[in-house]
Amino acid sequence: MARKNRNPVGKNVDPEAQKKKTRTLTLKSSDGQEFSISESAAVLSIAIENMVEDDCAGGVIPLPLVDGGTLARVITYLNKHAEDGASDEEKRKFDEEFVSGMEMGVLFDVVLAANYLDIRGLLREVRRRIADRMKNKSVEWVRKTFHIESDFTPEEEEQMKKEFAWAWEGVDSDVDD
């Protein structure tokens, strides 16, 4: 990820940026857990940045669509990406490790949170990861993972399978990795 650090270190220290680093915000999850985070890390989320700018934040920012476990993960991500002096390479490695251990359900919670909070980098990373894990999976695996019930008749399904039989070649076995 060749993104430029948003806050380059060393040159012309912006007093506003300094203030953001020391100011902390409190984020409150859907299940009532509260988390402290520096403003500079929190505003990597465009949605939070907007709330802070509109000054509707007050003391505590409620995030009713994100549960505590997911919010904790998102905050770990934001802290790393707001860290002074973390190189692009370091962040890339962090991203890789950050998502590699997550199960599909967790990844989906995180991608939903990233979408809701408008954290572009995280959204891109997790979306790519989900697509990577999904691409060789069977239809049944997808239904199970996304809690979708089939509304096709077996005959309809068979017909569709016949139409693009090559798309069923080289499908992984249904074991989650």
């Binding site: 239809v139 997808v142 239904r143 996304f146 089939s150 509304d151 399978k161 693009f164 798309a167």
Partner: peptide, 10 residues
């Protein structure tokens, strides 16, 4: 290729 398979999901 994945999309053509996943059309069957629902």
């Amino acid at each position: 290729k994945s999309l053509m398979r996943f059309r069957c999901v629902s």
